[in-house]
Amino acid sequence: MAKKKLTVGVTGLNNIDSPGPGIPVIRALKDMKDFDVRIIGLSYDSLEPGIYMHDLVDKTYQIPLPSAGQQSLLTRLDYINSIENLDIIIPNFDAELFNFIKLQDALKKKMNIHTFLPTLEQFEERHKSNLPEFGVKYGIKVPKSKMIHSMAEIHSLAYEFGYPLVVKGKFYDASIAYSPDQAMAYFNKISGKWGLPIIIQQYTQGTEVNVTAIGDGKGNLIGAVPMRKTYITDKGKAWAGVALEDEELMDIAKNLVKGNKWRGGFELEMIRTEKNEYFLIEINPRFPAWVYLAVGAGQNHPEALVKMALGEKVEPFKNYEVGKMFIRYSYDLICDLKEFETITTLGEL
């Protein structure tokens, strides 16, 4: 049977030392059995490595940064679609999701581009700043946290949280501060990049365990693979990890999706304490960069997402291979200046 042709736009091509999920998602899409997929990269910066990875990305277009607003993005996607006739877009950055969620109807109606995204309510309620309420609503333990809007509030944190504590940005970045001075330094650094508020979170001692998962928007968990990082870079990102067997973690994921009817890919970042308690640190509203481990372990989550985006019914994955590992490596891609010139001046490559 001939494979169905499919054109998919993917963001997050920043396959750098702290990688975006774009390239892993693309690898997963290339593994799909039923589809012959053409990948359109959507990049923000001329140096995102994915732009130059021609064996994975067929063509790349620059798109405006999320801060330029929805109209700019829509105009640009309209242009890209006029050439590429996109079937699906899979956004992979937290910071761009608000815009894509708002634009999903317009994309479908005007350009017949499918997406499979969480609703705005789902997206908003799992924000780091709302995590305490979120935990109560869905019965998940959450470390104590607080939003702060000015440096002056840092002084009182010692009484409330004690040190160390975690200083987090609205969209990205988290640093562990061991003193008020450090907390202030991180406050400045992170607020300068992602704006206010800053989230202060209680430091929870334990092992970090993560789950990459996908929900069908109706309360069913389509797939989930838990993982523990076995090696961490100096930026705190996973360098290597291993698929775990953890029924309790799977139950947490299942109950969460049953409760909030999450639609699309997501990642749970949890801490398992000495006493085997699980604390939710963060929910990422998209696939994590290590999503390809799930594929390797037998669950192709991006493929499930593509099918659901196209309106197909997808049965939940039943199992995965425990003990599958991933080990990240970096690789020096060689390319011509001409390519950099083209993406920089023309915005396409």
Partner: peptide, 10 residues
């Protein structure tokens, strides 16, 4: 820096 593609509306 902000690439200029698609930011014309600004």
């Amino acid at each position: 820096i902000m690439n200029k593609f698609g930011t014309k509306t600004e």
